[in-house]
């Protein structure tokens, strides 16, 4: 489903990696590992279609990445994509509309509850702690079962053990249902997956 061939990435004149191939089928978990600055985030952004690779190409369902890809892929980067001036609920609702996800008010509430955000649902995001902000971004995962490909950049950063568990459960359920997951993480984690792959990037 997701294929990349001969990918190369250059940042600021430095070649981070080259000749990287990968292929991902339903139910696969791909973990990208490597020291800081080895190009993990860059690889994820290339797979999301944000960064243009210095060489090589990424294909989804055999086609080059286009706008339809946006409906079938979920990307959560370092920044939480939560606007300070909108409430937690408004932020979630905007994301849901932007990605044309099928949901309802009840399920939105549930997603926030799952991440322990029900008390701050009506609070502008500027008053959230760093961890809460991450949770507000990740609450989307609870509504994204229908989205086949998840790309998560350091999803466990700044989360307490409770939230780590929530994310792991959601990811495992996603994989069990035939979804795909690419993630970078420094922490060890346990996500049950039908198939696992590992890419080690060198610094």
């Amino acid at each position: 489903m997701l294929e990349a061939t001969a990918l190369a990435c250059e940042r600021g004149g430095l070649r981070l990696f080259s000749d990287l191939d990968l292929a991902l089928e339903g139910g696969s978990l791909l973990r990208v590992r490597g020291p800081n600055g080895s190009g993990k985030t860059s690889l994820l952004r290339i797979l999301a279609g944000l960064t243009r690779p210095a060489a090589g190409s990424v294909r989804w369902r055999g086609r080059a990445l286009d706008e339809e890809y946006g409906r079938e892929m979920l990307f959560i980067g370092h920044a939480a994509a939560v606007s300070d001036d909108l409430t937690v609920l408004e932020n979630l609702e905007f994301t849901v509309d932007l990605f044309q996800m099928t949901t309802n008010q009840h399920r939105n509430r549930e997603a926030l509850e799952l991440f322990g955000l029900e008390r701050v649902a009506q609070v502008p995001a500027r008053y959230l702690s760093q961890g809460q902000r991450r949770r507000a971004a990740l609450a989307r995962l609870a509504l994204s079962r229908a989205v086949p490909l998840w790309l998560l950049d350091e999803p466990f950063a700044a989360l307490d053990s409770d939230a780590v568990e929530r994310v792991s459960e959601l990811a495992a359920a996603h994989l069990a249902a035939g979804g795909m997951l690419v993630l970078t993480s420094h922490q060890e984690f346990s996500i049950a997956a039908p198939a696992t792959q590992l890419i080690e990037l060198e610094g």
């Binding site: 999301a48 279609g49 944000l50 706008e67 339809e68 946006g70 409906r71 892929m73 990307f75 980067g77 370092h78 920044a79 939480a80 994509a81 939560v82 606007s83 300070d84 994301t95 932007l98 990605f99 044309q100 971004a137």
Partner: peptide, 18 residues
């Protein structure tokens, strides 16, 4: 700039919206 700083711009670009 505000949308770039909080990551929203990234989401706008990967979204299904052209």
């Amino acid at each position: 700039a505000a949308d770039l700083a909080d990551g929203t711009l990234e989401q706008l670009l990967v979204s299904p919206q052209p």
